[in-house]
Design a protein around this nucleic acid. Structure first.
Lengths: 258, 258
DNA sequence: CCACGACTCTGTACGACGTACAGAGTACAA
DNA sequence: TTGTACTCTGTACGTCGTACAGAGTCGTGG
């Protein structure tokens, strides 16, 4: 089974593919048999386009093959399986991010905010990424380049290396989480608008929910209204920045006392 | 398709099931046909047990039916489909949480921390929850009870209602996100230990990664080591608390100025 | 009292999925 | 020129959720 999980396939084979066998000890020399009609890049590109346009569920090996003008099994000539394909797609998407280097006098708050925003934009462009797991993805060129770039955003806060990784992981997890929630909410709405939902479910809920038993839920739920991704985003980013600042302060105190 | 998504089925039918048709205008009166051999609760309970023990992938309608001693299609007599079953499972799990009320003089930092911890424990007990989407789940008794209880944790910070919902959403999203990452990392490790992985992938990575091009990534990656869920957890919780405090301070300033 | 019909449970079957496998065709190497 | 490694294809298997038709079971209206 595929499980829409990054890192699902054989790690070494995946790595070779990710780096396109650059630096393999054995040079391929003359390959026998007919020339390949496609490339791994073409396959990955088509897969990304398909997933971008129609979602991860629509990305089936058959649909991908059709888009490539080829039979389903031919795809397996380029890619060992769907798990590895997903890894390649993720690294490809990461690799295409525009990683504008940080200026030396750019405040760290701005840098970290930019990292968050860039990642949010990435997940908007590729809505299938929040649908899959991306913890510790296979170390392809795109993944590593992105990691290197984003670590630089945390320069000058006074974070030790391990904590820097922790902070970045938390930040990306937060962006991922809100993007996923926003996508979920949008998909729910596309199937049935909030108004329709209330028209259908309202009477039953009113009959069944005891207002005296749930005073807070009723009041707050009404005030909050439909899921608001921007509000959660703003609050979460705020939290990360405050948390970092506190950490930096503690770090400075500790250094001063020493 | 199922999509392992809460809220996947027909909303009204799901709601009726969630509340077990309590307060339906038409009393069932005498039901014809043979008495049912199971109950919705039994089905949901077995499904939760199965998912707890063997993961969401192992929860198939056939496996569930077997566990219930019944043919696969019989399950559909109790539950319209798998999407609704997942909704019922989530509400059931939420409903079984021990929601110890907050003492009136319990500081809000302790209250919020407790909410986070309780949710973390829930996701450890039911590892299938982080695998599915839980944004705006169908409003069953368990979901609402949990929401009511957790909103109370944010009393006395000075947050307006809408912001209170935002803060709670963010907090739960963070807990969810770290639980998911931890589970993913654990599953990756179970398939291949970190040592094995380095033994296999190390040489290729060393050949392919230019240490001068990725100075930060190499250094920080090494310092961070394997994924450390506890570190990300601590940092994230810290961030939420700091963020809330700042918000409260701003709120107090605004009130004082007015 | 009895037959109708609503209801439960079952077996079979369909269409999707990822992909294993055997074969046909192709082009470089000996 | 022949062997062989390779590409591409068609068919097929096992999995999934679940539609559908039928058989059995019981409360109920005549």
């Amino acid at each position: 089974m595929t499980k829409n999980r990054s890192g699902g396939g054989d790690p070494v084979r995946t790595l070779e593919l990710l780096w396109r066998a650059a630096g393999t000890p054995e040079p391929p020399a003359g390959r026998r048999g007919p020339r390949q009609g496609l490339t791994v890049d073409a396959v990955v590109g088509a897969a990304v386009e398909l997933a971008d346009a129609e979602g991860l569920d629509a990305l089936t090996m058959r649909a991908l093959a059709q888009r490539l003008g080829v039979t389903p099994m031919t795809v397996y000539t380029y890619v060992p399986g769907k798990a590895e394909l997903l890894d390649l797609m993720l690294d490809d998407a990461y690799g295409r991010m525009e990683l504008t280097p940080f200026g030396p006098d750019e405040p760290w708050r701005d840098r970290v905010t930019r990292v968050a925003r860039d990642n949010r934009a990435l997940l908007v462009r590729h809505p299938w990424i929040p649908e899959m797991s991306v913890t510790r993805p296979p170390l392809g060129p795109g993944v590593i380049g992105k990691y290197e770039h984003e670590l630089a955003a945390f320069e000058g806060i006074g974070l030790p290396d391990a904590e820097r990784d922790t902070a970045l992981t938390h930040l990306l997890g937060f962006v991922h989480s809100t993007a996923r929630a926003a996508a979920d909410a949008a998909e729910l709405n596309s199937r049935q608008s909030d108004n329709d939902w209330w028209a259908e479910a309202g009477p039953l809920l009113a009959r069944v929910i005891d207002a005296e038993r749930y005073p807070l839920a009723g009041r707050v739920g009404e005030a909050a209204g439909a899921y608001n991704p921007d509000a959660v985003w703003a609050f979460g980013l705020q939290c990360v920045l405050e948390g970092l600042e506190r950490w930096a302060e503690r770090q400075a105190d500790g250094a001063g006392r020493r």
